[in-house]
């Protein structure tokens, strides 16, 4: 029983990270119809910014806020420099460009900070543990879950209730028509990138806060997994992104926890096989719309 709860808890916290990142993919996808493979690198940017700020002696809370700000700025810059001119260029061009941006950011980070892994020291408060039922839970696990819930709720509220959200939905529905109605599409796309970047920054900080060591290649694989989570849930759907994130984490954690020895090292392969199976049955993901338009 204890083993199961422990597995479940680690699935929940990993799933929260995936969900936060997957929402970012999903928002950008629904508005621009493009997949931003460089999204994962935002986690790296957030972590490195926080690390630099903490080393410079900035108080923790301020450093976190600044790191999120820096990440959002990078998100805006990436869109402005690399993606704006290829907005109408077709799926494959966009995928390739974002891959290139991803490689560029990772290499740039390597050039500045080299590729050795670094330790992030967060206040002791976060690593305090307490017991729920029969398992140990640390404060950062609770913070991770809370952040995910609050931020997801906030994104839903922004999209459903605010003027910006309404404009975002309009642009997602039909960019040209929204443009003709006087909505500034560039501003809306920037807003989407800011939201995505903030979520990614929080996810990055929570992730490296939990595992304490990080390096310049932390973002890509995490990004790819979160992206797969978004695809699993159905790109363009917020519910899909969150559900996909948790499903992905549950698969990963339970495969590595429960598969028989000798097979367990194939867990990554199993996770992807499940993804392929899901897409075979539902080619648009679990919550994706069945027509090929973006939603």
């Amino acid at each position: 029983m204890g083993y199961f709860t422990a597995q479940l808890i680690s699935a929940v916290k990993l799933g929260s990270i995936y969900a936060l990142v997957a929402i970012g993919y999903s928002i950008v996808y629904s508005i621009m119809g493009m997949i931003n493979f460089a999204h994962g690198e935002l986690l790296m940017i957030a972590t490195f910014s926080l690390w630099v700020l903490l080393n410079a002696g900035v108080p923790f809370a301020l450093a976190v806020a600044l790191a999120i700000l820096v990440t959002a700025l990078f998100g805006i810059l990436i869109e402005r420099i690399a993606y704006r001119s290829i907005r109408d260029a077709g799926e494959s061009t966009q995928i390739i460009t974002s891959l290139a941006v991803s490689i560029f950011l990772e290499a740039l980070c390597q050039a500045i900070f080299n590729s050795s892994s670094k330790a992030l020291i967060i206040p002791d408060f976060f690593s305090k543990t307490f017991r729920i039922l029969d398992t140990t839970v640390s404060v950062i696990d609770v913070v991770t879950l809370a952040c995910t819930l609050i931020l997801t709720l906030a994104v839903v509220l922004i999209i459903r209730r605010t003027a910006v959200g309404k404009a975002m939905r309009a642009v997602a529905d039909n960019m040209e028509a929204a443009d003709l109605m006087g909505i500034d599409k560039n501003r809306i796309i920037t807003a989407a990138f800011v939201i995505g970047s903030v979520l990614a920054a929080v996810a990055g900080i929570l992730y490296s806060g939990k595992y304490t060591s990080f390096s310049n290649d932390m973002g890509f694989m995490l990004g790819v997994k979160a992206f797969i989570a978004a695809v699993l849930g159905g790109l363009g759907s917020l519910t899909g992104a969150v559900t996909g994130g948790y499903i992905m984490a549950v698969l990963e954690v339970f495969f590595s926890g429960y598969l028989p020895r000798g097979v367990v090292s194939y867990q990554t392969a199993f996770t992807f096989l499940v993804l392929i199976l899901v897409l075979l049955v539902r080619p648009n993901g679990l919550f994706g719309s069945s027509n090929r338009q973006r939603s």
Binding site: S265, Y266, A269
Partner: peptide
């Protein structure tokens, strides 16, 4: 045979997944 039903973005991610699966098999 299994994956070519998918298109566009989905195919891109599945083929990337294929690279991960192949590496995982070679590793193990």
């Amino acid at each position: 045979f299994a994956i070519l039903r998918a298109r566009g973005h989905y195919l891109a991610v599945i083929t990337l997944g294929m690279v991960i699966v192949i590496k995982s098999v070679l590793d193990n």
